[in-house]
Computed example of a mutant assay.
Amino acid sequence: MSHRQVARQILTFEKRLIDGLLCLLLVAMIVLACLQIGLRTFFSSGLLWADPLLRYLVLWCGMLGAVVATREKKHIAIDVVGYLAPEQVKPWIGLVIDLFSSLVAAVLTWAAVIFVRNEVLFGSYPLLTVPSWIWNLIFPTAFGLITIHFLLAIAADIRLLASQSSRGNEAGSGP
């Protein structure tokens, strides 16, 4: 099996895992929120741990949603320069944007690792006997995956530029 096939299988596994986890988190959030509403409406009580858990679930959904948006190239982008640039320059602009984005995501990953390390050392109260640092592992995980997806986009940009360059050389080397 070639390294491309292995990489493709890993990316397929990652896609299915994150998409499935997002669906599971969304269902859990809906069920838990409806349960809280029902308990408060009909019994004037609720589950003490439900609201903090819902906050973490929203955070996890948001971060995993950002990973999916980056993977699908549907993340927020301000691309005025790329919109106005000539077609032959757009792949270069895309490469620069992906390089910058991967650098920012890598820095955020590092900052998130430091944050989680500090949570391990000085963490706050656990929720459902799970230490706070485990709930916050989503930050380095999501930013790390976003970094990987931007690095894959850089590789695709380079392949595109290389194919355009080889086509240009073939067209220019005619009789």
Rank of each mutant, 00 (worst) to 15 (best):
I93C: 02
Q36P: 02
A69S: 04
P86C: 07
Q88T: 13
L151G: 07
A112L: 01
A156G: 10
I37G: 01
P131N: 06
F42K: 00
P52I: 02
C34H: 02
T141D: 11
G174D: 09
V113Y: 04
R71E: 03
D98F: 06
I30H: 02
A105S: 05
V107A: 14
A66N: 10
R167V: 06
I158L: 14
Y125L: 14
W60C: 00
K74E: 03
L161Y: 00
T41F: 06
V107H: 04
A7K: 05
S173L: 06
A66V: 10
L39K: 01
I37K: 05
G94F: 11
L95V: 09
Q164N: 07
L22K: 03
T12H: 10
N136D: 06
E119L: 13
R167D: 15
D157Q: 08
A112S: 14
L161I: 07
Y125F: 14
W92K: 07
I97N: 08
T109F: 09
D157L: 07
L57A: 10
L22N: 06
G172A: 14
L17E: 09
L137I: 04
F143S: 13
G46M: 00
G82S: 13
C61P: 09
P131H: 02
R16M: 07
K90H: 10
F100S: 10
K73E: 09
R16F: 10
L84P: 11
S165P: 01
C34G: 08
I93M: 06
I97F: 02
L57S: 05
S173G: 04
V107S: 09
L151D: 03
I93R: 02
P91M: 01
N118P: 01
K15N: 13
G62F: 13
R8G: 03
E119R: 11
R159N: 11
D19L: 07
I93L: 13
I114C: 05
K15M: 12
G20F: 07
R40I: 04
W135H: 15
N136Q: 03
F13N: 01
N118I: 03
I18V: 12
L24C: 07
P126Y: 05
V116S: 03
T70R: 00
Y125Q: 15
L24D: 04
V58P: 04
Y56R: 10
F143M: 04
L21N: 05
A28I: 11
L127H: 12
A28D: 10
P86S: 07
